[in-house]
């Protein structure tokens, strides 16, 4: 619909979702191959991508099983890593405004990528488009490539050789970039990054990112008090 002034933004959001889906999806080949190598069968490996559908938790799960770890530890670690999806849901529920099975479907697609593509958009309607494009894009390619990796093995070799790990990090930087335009977003991201950096060595996997959520709490509390918010906004250009 060329008359819709938001049509271009919707198209751009869909394209972003598709690119993120493709880039992340390729990693599914590694996951599929590693799942089989860890001792899971084809259906167990495929079930994790279809039903757990959150990469960090999935890799942690098979990593622990592969190392001969306790299955209870694998389940606990996987769940711990998934907590951030629940935190994304708090904000996404307000953007998506769904009920019934659509809400359940949206919850299942609530992961880093779909949240980031939604967050990168300005208009709420475009944010919804971005969420579904990112979520369905990753879901499609992640599951397809998990199946490929589980059946034919690691056809792409080490994803790091192709720079795919760096591509994932760069994609997230690009997706949060629009939120770094205002001072509140900048300070929140900088504080979150500092927390994750400090917490990385002493805490187990997944915890640094969860602790980074404290930045939202601290900055949210400070900037909701108007007088102090002004103090924060004026002179601290060198903070970043």
């Amino acid at each position: 619909m060329p008359t819709d002034p938001l049509a271009l933004e919707h198209t751009a959001a869909r394209r972003q979702g598709l690119s993120v889906g493709l880039a992340t999806g390729i990693y599914g080949i590694s996951f599929g191959a590693l799942g089989i190598a860890a001792g899971l069968d084809l259906w167990q490996t495929v079930a994790l991508s279809l039903l757990l559908f959150t990469g960090g938790s999935q890799f942690a799960f098979i990593g622990i099983i592969s190392a001969g770890g306790n299955p209870v530890t694998a389940v606990v670690t996987s769940t711990l890593l998934g907590i951030r999806n629940g935190l994304y849901g708090l904000q996404l529920a307000r953007v998506l405004r769904l009920t019934g099975w659509r809400r359940a479907a949206a919850a299942h697609l609530t992961i880093d990528e779909s949240t980031a593509v939604a967050l990168a958009q300005e208009d709420p309607a475009v944010q919804r488009t971005g969420f579904w494009a990112g979520g369905l894009g990753v879901f499609t390619f992640w599951n397809l490539s998990t199946l490929i990796g589980a059946v034919v093995g690691n056809a792409i070799g080490d994803p790091r050789v192709w720079g795919l790990d760096a591509a994932a990090a760069a994609a997230f930087v690009a997706l949060i970039w629009p939120r770094l335009r205002d001072r509140t977003g900048q300070v929140t991201a900088a504080l979150a990054a500092a927390i994750a950096l400090i917490a990385f060595a002493p805490t187990p996997a997944g915890i640094p990112v969860l602790l980074a959520a404290l930045a939202a709490v601290v900055i949210g509390l400070i900037s909701s008090a108007p007088s102090r918010a002004r103090d924060l906004e004026q002179p601290e250009g060198d903070l970043l």
């Binding site: 951030r84 904000q91 880093d112 997230f172 949060i176 929140t188």
Partner: peptide, 15 residues
């Protein structure tokens, strides 16, 4: 706070 959560979590993830 909830509005800032995704940016904080994703910034942590990037690190």
């Amino acid at each position: 706070i909830i509005g800032l959560l995704p940016v904080a979590l994703l910034a942590g993830l990037v690190v």
